[in-house]
Design a protein around this nucleic acid. Structure first.
Lengths: 253, 253
DNA sequence: GAGTGGTCTAGACCACTTG
DNA sequence: AAGTGGTCTAGACCACTCT
């Protein structure tokens, strides 16, 4: 699921996720008790509880006092990077991602961009416009603004061939936090042309601001999805919430 | 924030939320350290960490090893009920909610409804159609299916005057979990008539399945929001996600 | 009544940030 | 170097579910 910074509770959580994904525990099934897992892993109860909390965070399980934890049905988990990176998401749902760069330019940031990226007057940004495809079909137009420092790195990449998020990670820039705003808009003439639909088609718009661990903005993006192709799902309970992006085939209800 | 089942960590968390909402700690500010709070409340460090975990769950703070926790900027927290109940949400954002019942009928459930509500063949459902308004302006059409047992209770209510969620709670039916799917659709002729817009307008569609603590479905709803009036926001990080519904005034960007 | 998860304590060591 | 959050242990009591 993840690679190994490997605290014990993370490894236990990943083991459980793997078993759930493999069908060892199906939707509605009861999971092992805390005490059983504590024994199996030679860990204390607190560590086991931490592992379960991680699964709860991903919206995979539910729990009530007195009864065993059970596996949730419905849409499967998607981790943080699947929400941030189109490439990760596509691979997670078993589709082949691709993309086409429409434009990449560097120019002075607008007031709005400076606001979202915490930039001073006169700062520059890189603007990347891409069409994203799943299995060869366009599903999304992405318009991303990067601060100068990040954009300079992005400009040296080949976005058709590699994930920008992954590449930035290799270069030491880590995405840690993101805020998404989701609403509906009609396709502009340009949107329509890029997506191959008629102007006025209902699009799902996601505006996203991503930051590093210290809260420094790394990107500000506006993505427009075909409304009949992509949806977001959220599972929430009295003390938890999870979001995942979802792809519904054209035949769905 | 909540009333008092009142475990210690919940009370601490609520105190912190209140201080944040009151402006004692503003966006970007550092929060008290674990040790300071442990002393102040006479609690152990673990309990303080539980309280902070609850704030993390609401997406209102961030934390990194070595540095103090800080308050997040951006959209303010909305608790679980604000996502479930239009009335709660409206009050949380300081607007006056109202509604108009378009239709309430009881009939045999469709196959789709039986699927979403885990009902057997031949089961009946109540179907409630409402238009929801903020400050007198229509912003949403809500079409909700209730299982017979719940619907019978709903049928005896006055939805114009009281929150169905609240009233069901008083009658002992607790909402504990919900799954939301969000996408974009065009307004049908009926949508358009009810919302006072032109057919084809882009609408934000939320489909919601809510369950009780044991996982028994309580409602299946399809809500359609005006795309330029309402948005959903999500904050997520490497190990956490939060969703909130958001209302953008017509003048917003 | 046995088992289970929810809450809480008191301690420990470590990785990291900050002055 | 001091302070802070991240991880982990070993115990305790309680509320609740299940059969």
């Amino acid at each position: 699921m993840e690679q190994g910074h490997a605290s014990l509770y993370r490894r236990i959580a990943d083991d459980l996720k793997a078993e759930i994904n493999a069908g060892t525990y199906a939707a509605g099934d009861a999971l092992p008790s805390e005490s059983e897992l504590a024994q199996r892993y030679g860990a204390s109860r607190g560590t086991i509880r931490q592992a379960f909390a991680a699964l709860r965070t991903d919206g995979i399980i539910s729990s009530r006092r007195g009864a065993r934890r059970t596996v949730h049905g419905g849409p499967r988990l998607q981790d943080f990077t699947a929400l941030l990176s189109f490439s990760h998401w596509a691979r997670a749902i078993g589709e082949v991602p691709s993309g086409r760069v429409i434009d990449l330019e560097r120019r002075a940031a607008t007031e709005q961009e400076r606001g979202h990226l915490d930039l001073p007057d006169g700062a520059y940004v890189y603007l990347l416009t891409r069409v994203r495809l799943l299995d060869g079909q366009p599903v999304m137009v992405e318009r991303t603004a990067y601060p100068d420092r990040i954009g300079a790195l992005v400009a040296g990449m080949r976005p058709e061939r590699e994930s920008i998020t992954d590449r930035l990670g290799e270069l030491g820039t880590t995405f840690a936090d993101a805020e998404h705003t989701i609403d509906a808009v009609r396709a502009t003439a340009e949107d329509a042309r890029l997506l191959g639909v008629r102007p006025g088609t209902a699009l799902l718009r996601e505006r996203r601001r991503s930051t590093d661990p210290a809260g420094v903005p790394l990107e500000w993006s506006e993505d427009r999805y075909l409304g009949d192709q992509v949806a977001f799902t959220v599972r929430n309970s009295v003390d938890h919430n999870t979001l995942s992006r979802w792809h519904s085939p054209p035949t769905a209800d």
